[in-house]
C-alpha cells in the first residue's frame, strides 16, 4: 500500500501565514533587484566600505535574495530558507564593521534583526499550518472490496457510522458538503475527491480554507479469502485535533458492523450518550 502519496496537497492553509510568507518573498525580490542593479548606491546607504570587491559581493547576495523570493512564490513553505540568507547577511555586515561607517552599519544591523525576526515568525507559522501526521486505522471486513468501496462511496450514508458527522450532501460527482458536530460547535466545509480508483481507493480533501482536512481510504482483498483490508488515513491541521486514532478506529468498527451485521450494534450502556450503567435506558420503559 502506497501511503506516501498523501504528502502532496496544499502546504499552507492558514491565510495569514500565507500572506506573511509572500510579503517576505516580495521583500526578497525587491532587495535582491536593488543589490544587483545598484550595488554602489546601496553600499553607501548601508555603510559598508567601497572597495573594488564590494559591488560583486552585493550582486552575489542579491542573486541569492532573488532566488529566495522566487522560491517562496513557488512554495510558500520554503520561507525558512530566508533564515540562511539572514545569517550570511549578518556575517557580512559584522565583517564590514572593520572599516565601514559605523553610524550607518548599526541601523543596517537593526534592520537585519527586524527582518530576521519576521522570517522566524513566518517559518513557524508555515510549519504550524502544515497537515498533521496522518491518523491511520485498519480493519478487516468480511465483504468484498467492491462492496466495501460502494458503501463508503455513498457519502450521504457516512454519518451512520462516523459519529462526528451530522450530514454529508453530495453536490456533484466530485464535490460534497460536510457538516460535523464538534466541542466548539457545528463545523461545515466542502470537500472534493482528489483521486479515486473504483473498488480500490478514494482520496478526498477539504476545499474550504478554514478547514484543513484530507483523507484517504483503500480497500484491498485480504489474504486467505477473509474479505477486505480497509485502511483509512485522516489528516487535519495539527491544532484542529478533529480525530484521534481511537475515533477513526471506532468509525471503522461501526462500518464493519454495518456491513457484516446490517447495523451499528449498541448495548444498554452505549445506547445513550455519556456514562450510563448497563441497564435499560430510562426513556425506554416498555410497558
Amino acid at each position: 500500500m502506497d501511503i506516501q502519496t498523501q504528502t502532496e496537497g496544499p502546504e499552507i492553509a492558514d491565510d495569514r501565514a500565507q500572506r506573511l510568507a509572500k510579503g517576505l518573498g516580495v521583500f526578497s525580490l525587491g532587495l535582491g533587484l536593488a543589490e544587483v542593479a545598484a550595488p554602489r548606491a546601496l553600499a553607501r546607504l548601508i555603510g559598508v566600505d567601497q572597495s573594488a570587491a564590494t559591488p560583486w559581493i552585493l550582486r552575489a547576495l542579491g542573486a541569492r535574495e532573488i532566488g529566495h523570493g522566487l522560491g517562496i512564490f513557488a512554495r510558500p513553505k520554503s520561507v525558512w530558507t530566508r533564515l540562511i540568507g539572514d545569517a550570511i547577511d549578518v556575517a557580512y555586515v559584522a565583517w564590514a564593521f572593520r572599516d565601514g561607517k559605523r553610524s550607518r552599519l548599526w541601523p543596517t544591523m537593526g534592520a537585519l534583526a527586524a527582518v530576521g525576526a519576521l522570517d522566524v515568525l513566518a517559518t513557524l507559522a508555515a510549519k504550524r499550518s502544515e497537515f498533521s501526521k496522518p491518523v491511520t486505522s485498519s480493519m478487516t471486513i468480511n465483504r468484498s472490496p467492491e462492496e466495501c468501496y460502494a458503501r463508503w462511496r455513498n457519502f450521504s450514508q457516512l454519518p451512520q457510522f462516523m459519529r462526528y458527522l451530522e450530514s454529508v450532501t453530495e453536490l456533484d460527482e466530485r464535490r460534497s458538503h460536510w457538516v460535523a458536530k464538534s466541542p466548539i460547535g457545528v463545523l461545515e466545509w466542502d470537500a472534493e475527491i482528489t483521486a479515486e480508483l473504483p473498488g480500490r481507493s478514494i482520496a478526498w480533501q477539504s476545499v474550504s480554507p478554514h478547514m484543513p482536512l484530507r483523507g484517504r481510504v483503500t480497500f484491498e482483498a485480504a489474504p486467505g479469502g477473509r474479505g477486505t483490508e480497509i485502511c483509512v488515513e485522516m489528516q487535519t491541521a495539527p491544532f484542529a485535533k478533529l480525530f484521534t486514532r481511537a475515533e477513526v478506529n471506532g468509525d471503522l468498527r461501526r462500518f464493519k458492523q454495518v456491513l457484516e451485521t446490517g447495523e451499528v450494534v449498541v448495548s444498554d450502556a452505549t445506547s445513550v450518550p455519556g456514562l450510563h450503567p448497563a441497564q435499560p435506558a430510562p426513556q425506554g420503559v416498555r410497558r
Binding site: 447495523e263 450494534v265 449498541v266 444498554d268 445506547s271 441497564q279 435499560p280 435506558a281 430510562p282 426513556q283 425506554g284 420503559v285 416498555r286 410497558r287
Partner: peptide, 8 residues
Amino acid sequence: VPDPKILN
C-alpha cells in the same frame, strides 16, 4: 430498573 426494549 426500566424494562428492556428492542434496540437493534
